[in-house]
Design a protein around this nucleic acid. Structure first.
Lengths: 222, 222, 222, 222
DNA sequence: GATGAATGAGGATTCATTCAT
DNA sequence: AATGAATGAATCCTCATTCAT
């Protein structure tokens, strides 16, 4: 067979085309899935909007589910890229934190549909499968751990376990972001940056609250 | 022998039956929807588990969507009841906050499937429709506003706008709760109560951080 | 739940209906699959012809494949019933064979579509899955073995291994039946009964042919 | 420089190439269709296995159906060639028959996938279209008719109509071959040659069976 | 009131075929 | 001539909802 059949003749392959087309699909899919929700998304509509046929989508992604996963993945990569970029040339640790928070919030202000994708991902694929966002969070923990450890060592922050501090901070960001979209608040996330950082760094209290100030019967657990 | 006279003839109607059956359905539906996710929930299965025919569900709820909405509503009511109960007999404001947080966390530790419902609700009914959880949050704002205003007036907390303080606190709780379920953490929410309250009240910093400590180019926005 | 929900109220079940409906579907499906071939059979069409909705078919059979398997199974059962019936009250062994062959051929004359089903079954489900017809053949071997053994013992047939004799006879019947449908012959199978039996019983030769009459170089193998 | 003059200029066309490639495709297609069944055969896979693009297949055959028909046709031609070859130098009529049967069986032992193709052909193209195998059978009837007539004239075989004798013989061969593949028997077809010939020539009975030996009520039909 | 059989719209996926390069 | 990206018709199956009993 091989002797008579040649591989090099015929229409030459456009090497870049598949990658470009793939990216186009991912971009359109992000808005599309966010707009309709995963289960209500008919790929025929997405194909129409892209000006291609349904079959073409299946050339690039083996199934609706795979397309969705790739779409979320793509967004998470963008988020990471923007936060990394914002932090790269910033030296002081606290400023680094501030810039990261600001970039994080700005990303969701500019790409609000991404929140929708996170919700959809969680809603559809809760069992077993990993959530792209939390995968990302885990993978990017390292540098922040170092940063907080440094702050702790230099006496800048109170003596709280580093992991706990990061976790509380992450949850605050995440909760703020999610809440905004769940509850339909109008103001931008970025505008909340200072309040969030202020609470995070300084707390709500004027003077430190200790167990003494709380009710008695729960004291033992604290 | 008018129709109104018949009321007392024959087997007396069990006035409470419909209400009880309704409640049974809601209880089963909560676990059911949480387990399978809204779009994957086949009402035939739910009916089977209830030992009831599918048609019966439609006697109590006009549609799958309505059943789901009522289910979430029901859970939110339970959450409110438990938090209110936990706070009722507590006097000191800070203790009140602590007890509320603890009850809130305990509720989700005991009824983790409710988180799933919130996610499903948001995922399916994002357009236009109100989210039961955030409806509840809005409706229950009043007493907390008073509490925080009181704390502020009595010089207990820093001079932060009351609404902002409540919002940040709410988001932290909400984000903590959500994150736990999204990321599959093992430890109970209740065990995080102290960390959360500590951060909320005292912040992360030893000494107060001001704008001076942050990077320059973002100052104008603060 | 059980206490308030009763199983005995509501529309009473028509016990016989499901079985009747099932049989109706199987009858229609036999002609349908035979007419169009398994892969070209759209269950929507079958449903239309039956005057029911597609979903109804799926109430009775979990998938197209299952419906098809049940259809073939049903036909094989009918074939067996007719052959058994034809043989029941016949005593003499040779007459028994004759009647069986005749009934077998008559069945396919009257239900020619069944051949089509056998072909379709084999064509679609060749790997692994059992063929209903050959399952049937295996299961019904016993009585025929006894019959042939009896004939052999009473010196009625030449000294040929019983299994082989039955196999050759079966193959002749099967080949005759199949060939008729593959090649589109017009005459009935039943009209071939005597030729088939004559050849089977008496062979084609006037005097017995032995190895001596055949070519030399293949002798060793005989 | 007319177009006709160019014939001798430049690289000479490989006249045989298209024919060879066509044959390569047919060979691969035979195994391919037999392996997957006609409807499950994706031409992309066949093209891949051939190391060729899908479009190329369409240069050689106008449609999937045509490719399949040509594939079967090709196999039938090979069968005929082998049987003819086996018989060519054999003189005695009975030996000729034996050799033909042996070659026929050997062919299917060596090319079992061909049986699959016959089944597929019949399963897919039952309406109207001719079956390649039976076309072949019809076309090759002539010489065998002569052979049987000769045997009959020389008193070698019983006084059975020649056409009938051939038909019964063909059906036995065909049924034996098909049955083997349908029922998954392990032993080779060639090993059955003697049993088949023995039954065909000598029948199963020791002494001739006549209508007298069969049941009464069917006598009139015989 | 309850039942559960019936409905049929809806959507994911496949793959023969076309055609620009 | 060969290629392989693109097409879109075709079809299986699910399940919310209805309604006769």
């Amino acid at each position: 067979m091989t002797s008579t059949m040649r591989k090099t003749v015929g229409r030459p392959k456009d090497e870049g085309l598949p990658a470009r087309r793939r990216q186009e699909i991912l971009n359109a899919a992000a808005h599309f899935f966010a707009r309709l929700g995963y289960p209500n998304s008919d790929l025929r509509i997405l194909a129409d909007e892209l000006g291609v046929a349904k079959g073409t989508l299946y050339r690039y992604f083996p199934s609706k589910k795979d397309l969705f996963a790739a779409t979320v993945e793509n967004c998470v990569r963008q988020l990471k890229a923007e936060v990394d970029e914002a932090v790269t040339h910033v030296g002081p640790p606290l400023a680094k934190i501030e810039q990261a928070v600001r970039a994080y919030f700005r990303f969701f202000d500019q790409h609000p549909y991404v929140v929708e994708l996170f919700i959809q991902e969680r809603a559809e694929f809760r069992a077993g499968e990993k959530q792209a966002y939390f995968e990302h969070r885990r993978e990017n923990l390292g540098p922040w751990k170092e940063l907080f450890a440094e702050l702790s060592a230099s006496g800048k922050i109170r003596n709280v376990p580093v992991d706990r501090a990061i976790e509380v901070a992450s949850n605050l960001l995440y909760g703020t972001m999610f809440t905004k979209y769940f509850s339909g608040q109008e103001e931008t996330l970025e505008s909340k940056t200072n309040d969030v950082l202020d609470t995070l760094f300084n707390g709500l209290m004027l003077k430190e609250i200790t167990s003494e100030d709380l009710v008695v019967e729960t004291r033992k657990e604290i």
